[in-house]
Computed example of a mutant assay.
Amino acid sequence: MDTTQADAIPLQVARLDESRLVGSDRVLAVLKELARHPDGAGLEELTRVIGSPKPTVHRALASLRRAGLADQDDRGRYVLGDEFLRMAFAHHELRPEQVRIRPVLEALAARFGETAHYAVLDGREIVYRAKVDPPTGAVRLTSTIGGRNPAHATGVGKLLLAYRLDSLDAVRDWIGGEPLVRRTANTLGDAGALYRELRLSRERGYAVDDQENEVGINCLALPVYATSPATPSGAISVSALTYRTPLSTLTDAVEDVRRALGAYR
């Protein structure tokens, strides 16, 4: 075999692998889009959002249906399949931190009459891994398990960033060329302000969200050390309606939250 033939074979394999990867990406894109439509989505709508030809999206849906990850209702609209929901909920319930942290969240929700969260950092966002609503109260937060928010605009996000970004240069590198999203008038919008807030959060051992992610909502966040005694694996927060529980009420009770976490350890 000459050199030209030898070089051609890996190139063909690479192209085949790339084609398979793109196909897998399309299937996953369809799956993620279905999750945004609890009432179902039609083929035309999915095709438009995904930006792929209709036959390609239809094949992706067929693959998902064969695996039980998607289904079609009596209106012909596509929804997430029961197998996907079974897998997601089973996995979530068995996550070690979810199982261990839930009693703390329940205690905090009952103590404050507000919503308690457990969240982790994922790049520039935080992801809610667990949530417990208060046992009573007509108004509850719309946050969901698996939901995301900008890290710099949330108490849990700033708390976790405080342990990772310990200098102004580190904060600038983390921000990079992408501007900080301003969710409200209170959201920190530049590196200097964020660095000062992270340093303060690190010094006092907790972070706050003073209506920075959503008007009318504030929160107190503390670190959770589930996997390492030095670096938080995540953070818990008590998120409250400002008219019902002012931020000062939360910060005045920070030792109560620490005691609840102490019981968790």
Score class of each variant (00 low, 15 high):
Glu214Ala: 03
Pro55Ala: 04
Arg265Met: 14
Ala130Cys: 08
Val99Ile: 10
Asp7Cys: 09
Glu197Tyr: 01
Glu45Val: 12
Asp71Pro: 10
Ile236Trp: 03
Thr144Arg: 10
Gly76Val: 04
Ala130Ile: 02
Tyr128Ile: 11
Leu11His: 05
Val13Gly: 06
Asn213Phe: 03
Pro179Asn: 00
Arg259Ala: 15
Pro53Val: 13
Leu165Met: 11
Thr231Ser: 06
Tyr195Glu: 03
Leu165Arg: 03
Ala226Trp: 00
Gly81Leu: 09
His91Phe: 15
Thr115Gln: 02
Arg129Gly: 07
Gly76Cys: 04
Leu220Ala: 02
His58Gln: 02
Ala235Ser: 05
Leu80Gln: 04
Leu141Gly: 07
Glu125Phe: 14
Arg265Gln: 15
Ala207Tyr: 01
Ala253Pro: 15
Lys54Pro: 07
Leu160Met: 04
Thr245His: 10
Asp210His: 01
Val13Thr: 08
Leu94Val: 14
Leu64Arg: 02
Glu214Met: 05
Gly68Ala: 05
Val257Tyr: 10
Arg65Cys: 12
Leu11Asp: 07
Leu94Lys: 07
Glu106Gly: 14
Leu247Trp: 13
Val238Leu: 07
Ala62Phe: 08
Pro223Asn: 03
Ala230Phe: 10
Ala185Met: 01
Ala14Ser: 05
Ala221Cys: 02
Leu188Ile: 09
Ile101Asp: 07
Pro246Phe: 11
Ser239Ala: 13
Leu108Tyr: 10
Phe89Ala: 13
Tyr163Gly: 10
